[in-house]
Simulated assay, not measured.
Amino acid sequence: MKKIGIITIHSDLNYGAFLQAFALTTFLNNNSYYTRIIDYRKIPNSPRIYKFPKNIIYKIYNLPRLSRYRRFIAPLLSNERYNSLEELQSFNEEFDILISGSDQIWNPVCGGLNRINPAYFLAFASKDKYKKISYGSSVGSYIYDENEKKQVRKWLNEYSHISTRESSGAIQLESIINKPVKVVLDPTLLLNKDGWLQYASSVKIKSNYVLVYYIDELDEVVSYARIIADKLGLKVALITNMAKRHSKVDINIPHCGPAQFLWLFANATYIVTNSFHGTAFAVNFNKDFVSVIKRNSPQRAQTLLKNVGLYERLLTNIDELDNIPLNVDFKEANIKLDILRNDSISYLLNSIEH
């Protein structure tokens, strides 16, 4: 049995990053590989900073959510924990293959160092001991400068297979390394709805609801949800880590771990999100949805929705709500998603075996 180690962003309290790490590891374990996440704890990208005593209150308020995160991922972590690049230099775990996992690990803005993080290019690992591949590793909207290109080229030349999540990322990387770069699905889409629901945990919520999951721009996303909820006679429910309720929100849902996140998506009547992973789960679970464009990094949602034929669900202006049907026809989208899923699975397994 081949042993595989995955390095990716898994320690931030971010549902999308967390669940993509869980999905890739779980998929490979389900396919008879021994797979673990290399437990490298990077510096969080945008930690909330509060003065005393608010910093203590915030930490206490978030303890239930943090506990749920840790319990969910703990069985999939490697034996050693690495808290710095220096600690990774002694890496010698018994893996045959190392995978740079998905999410924006190749985007310096997201790597925790405010520069390219060599850990996510497997620079700490000997090419003579480990086979190196990538699955869905993303640069996001970042454009490398000439010095960064030289470094990226050096590291990626040690990889046998390279893939990313976005067409724009593939084009940029191909220009740097002069090799083909495969565009694949985000790992969360390697598992279908039934595959995910076995990990869901219920939330006490009595009303039918429009679920809001957002990354920044809360007011804008909630405004979309409020219009839809009023049309359909639903409540607006918000996944949040804030105690204060937004004026247009009916139901605050705090302290969600990944298992509760999955249940809320599976049981929503409608989903409004500006998150790529929120969009991916809405598509995967066949939920009526709109995706509000994330203006600083729209590439991931654009690529996914174009590829499954649902690009009209990506809205740039609230007035566009009047120009699309509220309900989504998933018939053709499901066919296209199955083709993409099978293609991504074939690429991944072939990368490991050859």
Rank of each mutant, 00 (worst) to 15 (best):
322 D>L: 10
29 N>E: 06
328 V>R: 03
31 N>A: 07
215 I>C: 07
354 H>A: 05
108 P>F: 09
38 I>T: 00
129 K>R: 13
80 E>D: 12
322 D>Y: 15
278 G>F: 01
117 N>V: 11
159 Y>R: 14
181 V>K: 03
337 L>N: 06
251 I>M: 08
336 K>P: 05
138 S>Y: 00
224 Y>F: 11
7 I>S: 03
16 G>L: 01
253 I>Y: 02
287 K>G: 08
185 L>S: 00
259 A>P: 07
31 N>C: 07
199 Y>K: 14
252 N>T: 15
78 S>P: 04
126 S>W: 11
237 A>R: 01
12 D>T: 05
108 P>L: 13
247 S>E: 12
65 R>A: 08
282 A>W: 02
20 Q>E: 10
260 Q>E: 15
313 R>V: 08
164 T>N: 08
48 R>P: 02
72 F>D: 01
186 D>S: 03
315 L>Y: 06
286 N>H: 05
128 D>Y: 15
122 L>Y: 12
3 K>S: 03
31 N>Q: 10
99 I>K: 02
192 N>D: 13
73 I>V: 15
58 Y>V: 06
12 D>G: 05
30 N>D: 10
136 G>Y: 01
98 L>P: 02
274 N>L: 12
341 R>K: 13
124 F>A: 02
344 S>Q: 05
57 I>E: 11
72 F>S: 01
3 K>W: 01
348 L>E: 07
5 G>I: 04
209 Y>F: 15
196 W>V: 09
184 V>S: 02
118 P>V: 06
243 A>H: 10
275 S>N: 04
354 H>Q: 07
81 R>Q: 14
97 I>P: 02
232 L>A: 08
221 V>Y: 06
299 Q>Y: 13
39 D>F: 02
270 Y>L: 04
30 N>Y: 12
45 N>R: 10
33 Y>N: 07
183 V>F: 08
349 L>G: 12
230 D>Y: 12
128 D>C: 09
260 Q>D: 12
88 L>A: 06
283 V>N: 00
230 D>V: 12
259 A>Q: 09
187 P>V: 01
237 A>T: 08
227 I>W: 14
216 D>M: 14
108 P>H: 05
11 S>N: 11
161 H>D: 13
162 I>N: 03
263 W>I: 15
181 V>F: 04
109 V>M: 13
265 F>N: 00
65 R>G: 04
352 I>K: 00
276 F>S: 04
220 E>F: 04
